[in-house]
Design a protein around this nucleic acid. Structure first.
Lengths: 328, 328
DNA sequence: TTCCACCATGGAAACGTTTCCACGCGACGG
DNA sequence: CCGTCGCGTGGAAACGTTTCCATGGTGGAA
């Protein structure tokens, strides 16, 4: 309730001096400084953020739009990004698109209205009008984990090719020939890149190139379970299954357990995306660990670079394989 | 970049009329309305949120402070709360305390500066100066899942007593006598309430009241694993283990698997807090499902009631048991 | 001693809204 | 035909900051 005028009055200084002390923007005499700070403390003064933003034409806030905060990948990323932003004096506003284009647009509208200084965006699909509007306003934007067709923005995400390479090496080392692949939608860059890397690298790693072993869901558990069942229904019997993201792997696992029992009939499961609990699953799941925290931190740093007027270099974060196969 | 003045000028109306149309606050003639909306669309006008907040002395934003967004309970809750808030025209600002009192205070300071209209708070511990400051400003606040000593605020959380009752019934039905309990910190209301309900109800459900079977961690995986190991080291051999929250159960599971093998030596595990993947764990974990979404929605509704000047009634959300025990 | 430069200071202006107030006009009733 | 009522309107004021500008004072250099 107390304004800076009240503080100035109580400290017996002018409005300007009080502002200079409280925002630390310019030199002030030690005595003024002391009295202003004392007055502010006594009154419990808290600067009015919106007024400050109005005057300074910046909000010191970054927006983060993720497709689903319940997805552990994104909650980890959000957490890391928030820490990094906070460390640099920025607040992080989080919005949830709920895997829905309308909600995503809605969130972008809110961000635009809040006048965020920059945006971390995990795109749902193609560019939307709201996104175009933000681009037109020259709001700095970086992309997370998925690319947008036709829009060239700094990108921070997993190195899909390298990650799939690790999986292929592992499959070969374990001697798997008949491997099922449960993919994601080709319309997402993640789905497309992983599929391309896997399908293109199979032969060189001694894996059968039978198309009956390949199907795709929509990166949801349910979609992936259905895809896995379709594969099994074709009468093929893989010795290993590769899920193209975390939810996909869970769906495949569910289908395998339904069909083949709690140990999935000895089928080995390997995943792009790691969850901690994969260690406790039956069967244990080997996974490529997608470093969400590194992506979040890198993206914030890139965005901050853009805000300083420098340019940001895209990063593909390398993955590492967590091998949980039962060894004899 | 376009302001409401630009819109008014282009539409050939006065400033006031433009504002009235765009904020829908009062009657305007159809012709004005039409021209203002057209002008706004042509200019790509987006209202300046901070300016609006400054003038209206409200932000239409609610703050949500959780202890750790990576905790699935909170990400689920955050998601549900955001949907509910959005449906009522409020934005939800999310902040992460990272289980750390300083960061929590920092986040509260930011919220205060942003002039949020209301706060959903999952407290870390006792009341802090920043919280007192918010209370003094008469910012409406509701509490999530944990209470604060000495502060009487509307509360939305799990019905711990009822949930523990379900677990006790299940343990009795399964014929367990020697049950280990891995609890949480007594300084948190959740830890204390669950411990009280369990310890007090044991005898009536035919469970041994041997204190060697009881230990406590700090609601983290590592702390719980250590507690579980302490119990096993006492030479007791329980037939079932009850973990007082999700992370605790995971820690106990880890310790059991380390000591007794991948099937935990046949020990049955039951948890307060359910994770979807418990179905795929080895051994499968029975759990009391904590309805995070219902808590989030209820809390937002309560907060909105406070904002309307009504008063909010605390809610204890009932849990349900998800029985995943292997039946013969 | 005198001037100049510099630094701290007080207050006005500006940021983009909403809302209040006063005004003009048309319609309706007397 | 005139007074009044009400509705739509334009513009000024206000919200709480920061920043610019002018001013006064002080220290050092000449």
């Amino acid at each position: 309730m107390a304004t800076i005028k009240d503080v100035a009055a109580r400290a017996g200084v002018g409005l300007g001096t009080a502002s200079r002390v409280l925002s630390g923007s310019a030199q002030t005499s030690p005595s003024s400084r002391e009295r202003v700070l004392a007055a502010a403390a006594e009154l419990g003064y808290v600067a009015h953020g919106p007024a400050r933003s109005l005057r300074r034409a910046r909000t010191d806030a970054l927006g983060l739009l993720v497709s689903d905060i319940r997805n552990p990948f994104f909650s980890e990323l959000a957490h890391a990004a928030e820490q990094e932003a906070r460390a640099h004096g920025y607040a992080l506003l989080l919005a949830n698109a709920n895997e829905d284009a309308d909600q995503a647009d809605d969130a972008l509208r809110t961000f635009a209205s809040q006048r965020i200084d920059g945006l971390l965006l995990s795109p749902q699909g193609p560019a939307t009008p709201q996104l175009a509007s933000l681009l037109a306003r020259a709001v700095p934007i970086v992309l997370l984990n998925r690319r947008i067709e036709g829009v060239d923005l700094p990108f921070y995400g997993t190195d899909n090719e390298q990650g799939v390479g690790l999986v292929l090496d592992w499959l070969q080392e374990r001697g798997h020939r008949d491997v099922a692949y449960v993919g994601g939608p080709q319309t997402m860059s993640t789905g497309a890149e992983r599929a391309r890397a896997y399908l293109g690298g199979r032969a060189a790693h001694g894996i059968a190139t039978d198309d009956a072993l390949v199907d795709a869901g929509d990166f949801t558990t349910d979609g992936a379970a259905a895809a896995m069942l379709r594969i099994l229904d074709r009468g093929v019997r893989p010795t290993a299954v590769f899920g193209a993201n975390g939810a996909t792997t869970v769906g495949a696992l569910r289908a395998l357990r339904e069909r083949l029992g709690a140990d999935a009939g000895g089928v080995e499961v390997v995943s792009f995306d790691d969850f901690d609990w994969f260690a406790y699953a039956s069967p244990a799941i080997t996974a490529v660990r997608n470093d969400a925290a590194a992506i979040g931190v890198g993206a914030v740093q890139g965005l901050l670079a853009l805000l300083r007027g420098e340019d940001a270099t895209s990063q593909r974060i390398a993955t590492e394989l967590v091998d949980r196969a039962a060894r004899s």
